[in-house]
């Protein structure tokens, strides 16, 4: 997909997921120390938002670095 010309779709996806992961992990770590920051939710003691945010960072990083456009430029040069 635009593999041989331009930036891959997977790079865009990786970038957005990475940003989301950082935002969600950060916000949920902050909430863990400041419970009044968020609304009360069921199972909030699991701090699921932190784990989900980390998952997004991992998935996002895989796509972000795996499909980074500068990789092809370096290879071509």
């Amino acid at each position: 997909m635009v593999d041989n010309k331009g930036i891959s779709i997977w790079f865009f996806i990786g970038t957005l997921l990475l940003l989301y992961g950082i935002i969600i992990t950060g916000a949920n770590i902050y909430e863990a120390y400041n419970p009044s920051f968020g609304r009360p939710t069921v199972l909030e003691n699991m701090h699921f938002g932190i784990w989900w945010g980390i998952l997004l960072i991992i998935v996002g990083s895989i796509y972000f670095f795996g499909f980074r456009p500068w990789k092809h430029k370096n290879q071509n040069s």
């Binding site: 989301y20 969600i24 939710t41």
Partner: peptide, 12 residues
Amino acid sequence: LARYAGPGLLGL
């Protein structure tokens, strides 16, 4: 969604 989603997850 409201039952489970904390900050950011709700937005997602």
